[in-house]
Write a protein that binds this DNA or RNA. Structure first.
Lengths: 164, 164
DNA sequence: TATTGTTATACTCTATAACTATA
DNA sequence: TATAGTTATAGAGTATAACAATA
């Protein structure tokens, strides 16, 4: 068929369509960027959370990242198999697993953060610097998320989903 | 647990996270807006395409909207059951089904378009008018989609997905 | 021989429920 | 009685393969 050019009734007139495909494109770029490190997207989210404030329990990770606790089991399994995290009973409450990064995990996190930021830059390349900043600010605004991650008061929590 | 406030290592620092949740929020608003009309999101996309240039074959619809042709079968089934579209063999090529809107379907499409636009407006409400316009323009820019749907030259086709 | 539409099937991803152990 | 983690199972959503009708 003909090349997919916009036409009357084209789905690209819908903001839902634009947001979905923008997300998919960035996800593809980010996945490709961290894949050489042996990481999947949702694993990267776990690594970042741990690097910032380990140790964390699996339920704390699941809650922070908005994934189901049963899903987190498999994510931690995979990261443990790769030697990126360790899982041990929390001495203070032996029902809990204390999840911690290994030294290799900390190195992987640094590499992944750099790779991810490069993917973001590639995604935003068609925009100028000011336009890119405004774009991110608008996204935070529609989600009622304050500008800085440590600014204090919070917006309403987005719905449960994976760490992407 | 405490309210989900941003913290160091928070996923809201990632553009993937912001895009995903922005998409989910708009989708929830749009679904709620058209649900009273008995429509699902992906059905709305089919209605819009048909209203603009019916009749269309199922494969043409699937290609335009980026869904799998086998998925389109069930969508057309549902729309036919609701009396919104008709399915008949194309006289020019009887392998094809010519999908057309019924009169009720045209009315439903008008109502759905209005309901959807209201949902978009609610989603964009935290932004000023200029900021909202810039936001949409940035989305089109990162996807290499030209500003007007009939501007002629096309960007690269976004990857296959559903009509949302 | 290729294409449209259809059906049946498989696969992926995630949530729900039930269980163990700890508190 | 309640919670953290685990496992098994089920559900939604979509893609793949095979088929009939038609070109």
């Amino acid at each position: 068929m003909s090349s997919a050019r916009p036409a009357a009734g084209d789905p690209s007139e819908l903001l839902t369509y634009l947001l979905k495909h923008a997300h998919r494109r960035l996800l593809a770029l980010a996945d490709a960027a961290i894949e050489p490190l042996g990481l999947e997207g949702r694993e990267f989210g776990v690594l970042r959370a741990l690097a910032a404030r380990e140790p964390l329990s699996q339920q704390a990770l699941a809650g922070d990242l908005g994934v189901d606790p049963t899903t987190m089991v498999a994510v931690i399994d995979a990261l443990e198999d790769k030697g990126i995290v360790t899982r041990r009973p929390d001495p203070a409450d032996r029902r809990r697993n204390a999840i911690e990064l290994t030294e290799a995990g900390r190195a992987t996190n640094r590499d992944a953060e750099a790779a991810y930021r490069a993917a973001e830059a590639e995604f935003l390349a068609p925009l100028g610097g000011a336009e890119a900043a405004a774009f991110s600010a608008s996204l935070r605004a529609v989600l009622a998320i304050p500008d800085g991650p440590d600014t204090g008061d919070a917006g309403v929590a987005p719905a449960r989903t994976d760490a992407g």
